[in-house]
């Protein structure tokens, strides 16, 4: 589905990612793990087109997307959420999700100005779909609330709904369970399994909550200082000595 080949990213003298290689198969939930500053979010920014890598290339369904702009990459079917929540603060939850549908609306500026028939049918259709997404994420009671007024965990879910609205094949989630309590993160794990089946998704996620990773991920990759130190199943990761030394520490004991 997606493959990173020899990706290196330098910021001035700092090597954020050094020769990163991995591929994710269709339908997988793939975890990107590692201590702070390991280059996980940088890898996301490279896939989503926010950064161009210093060298190497990104292949999405055999197509080179290394130098494409973020909005073009979204149209190809890759959507993302952000580590530091970036919702549109002045808008309602429903409107936030509707912005995600933006590139799928099929009316032009003049149809909007003259309020032609297609405007009304399209608005109605996508509002219905947006409500359905909010229902899946159990946010339907909040649809008219201002996005900023929601709890931290719910704001993360709005971001996921907004990303789903772009009709992605690959979903990049940057710390989706951060700021959630145990009940909420368990609920989120179920939701992720559900949307994977429902929308035929491949998911890559960054996460520090190891219980959540174990519950959700099929395969994980551990990064440390921009280098891969482990790739395999979450169960094996917990036993791996180098991972324990670099990242997990006393957590396992």
């Amino acid at each position: 589905m997606i493959a990173l080949e020899h990706i290196t990213k330098q910021f001035g003298g700092v090597v954020a990612i050094n020769d990163l290689n991995f591929h994710v198969k269709k339908g997988e939930i793939f975890g990107l793990i590692g201590p702070n500053g390991a280059g996980k979010t940088t890898a996301f920014n490279i896939i989503s087109g926010n950064y161009t890598p210093t060298s190497g290339r990104v292949l999405f369904k055999q197509q080179d997307i290394t130098n494409k702009k973020p909005n073009e990459i979204v149209k190809l079917g890759i959507a993302r959420t952000f580590q530091n929540i970036r919702l549109f603060d002045s808008m309602s939850v429903l409107d936030n999700v509707l912005v995600g549908f933006d590139s799928r609306f099929k009316y032009n500026l003049f149809e909007a100005i003259l309020r032609l028939r297609r405007f009304f049918t399209q608005e109605e259709m996508f509002t219905k779909q947006a409500r359905y997404l909010l229902e899946i994420l159990k946010l339907d009671t909040h649809q008219f609330d201002n996005a900023k007024s929601l709890s931290y965990g719910n704001q993360r879910k709005v971001e996921i709904a907004r990303a789903l609205a772009t009709n992605p094949q690959l979903l990049l989630l940057d710390e989706p369970a951060a700021g959630m309590n145990i009940t909420e993160s368990e609920e989120l794990a179920d939701i992720l399994h559900f949307i994977r089946r429902k929308f035929n998704l491949t998911i890559i996620l960054i996460e520090h909550d190891m219980k959540f990773v174990q519950k959700v991920c099929d395969r994980v990759l551990v990064l440390d200082y921009g280098k891969v130190i482990f790739e395999g199943s979450p169960q094996d990761m917990l036993q791996d000595e180098e991972v324990i030394r670099a990242y997990l520490g006393d957590f396992v004991k």
Binding site: N71, R86, F88, D89, M91, D102, T166
Partner: peptide, 12 residues
């Protein structure tokens, strides 16, 4: 509200 986020979800 957030130009980068808008671009990241497909707004031209």
């Amino acid at each position: 509200d957030d130009e980068d986020a808008a671009e990241a979800i497909g707004v031209d």
